[in-house]
Amino acid sequence: MIREEVSIKVHCIVSCLCEVIREERALLDYRPMYFGLWDAAFDVTDQGEITYYQHDLDHSHYFWSYRDLFGATVVEWYDKNKHKNENLDTLLTLLDEETPGRYVMAQIDMSYMPERENKFHQKPFPHFLILTKTEDDHKWMMLDPDFRWRGIVDKEQVVQAFVENPFGGGFYVDANELAESSVMAVDRYFQQGFTEHNELTNLLKTLIPQMVDGKNGYSLDDLTLAVRQLPVLAIRKYSYEHAMMYFIEEAGLSDETFDAYTDLVERIVQGFHSVQYMAIKMSMTGKTDLLDAVMNKLEEMDGIETAVKNELDRLYQLWTIHQQLPDTLSLAKNAKGRTL
Rank of each mutant, 00 (worst) to 15 (best):
E5H: 06
S15D: 15
S15F: 02
E24N: 11
A26C: 05
L28H: 07
M33F: 08
M33T: 00
D39F: 03
F42D: 03
Q47N: 13
Q54F: 08
L57C: 05
F63C: 10
F63R: 03
W64S: 12
S65T: 12
Y66L: 01
Y66F: 15
L69M: 08
T73W: 05
T73F: 00
H83D: 14
L91A: 06
T93M: 11
T93E: 15
E97Y: 02
R102V: 11
V104A: 05
V104R: 01
V104E: 04
Q107W: 04
Y112F: 12
P114G: 06
E115H: 12
E115T: 10
E115M: 09
E117I: 04
K119C: 07
H121F: 07
Q122V: 00
K123H: 11
F128P: 01
I130Q: 05
D136E: 14
M142I: 11
L143S: 13
G151I: 08
I152C: 08
D154E: 15
Q157C: 04
Q157L: 09
Q160F: 08
Y172N: 02
V173H: 02
V173E: 01
A175V: 08
A175F: 04
N176H: 13
L178R: 02
D187C: 06
D187E: 13
R188N: 13
Y189N: 11
Y189P: 02
Q192H: 12
G193V: 05
H197G: 04
N198C: 10
N202H: 10
L203A: 08
L204N: 05
M211I: 07
Y218V: 03
D222I: 01
T224A: 12
V227C: 05
P231A: 10
K237T: 06
Y238R: 12
E241I: 08
H242D: 13
Y246T: 07
G252A: 06
L253R: 11
T262Q: 15
T262M: 09
T262I: 09
L264Q: 15
Q270K: 13
F272N: 01
M278N: 13
M278R: 14
K281E: 15
L290T: 04
L291W: 03
D292V: 10
E299W: 00
D302Y: 12
I304N: 00
R314C: 03
Q317D: 07
I321P: 00
Q324A: 11
Q324T: 11
L325Y: 02
P326Y: 06
T339S: 14
L340S: 07
L340V: 11
L340T: 12
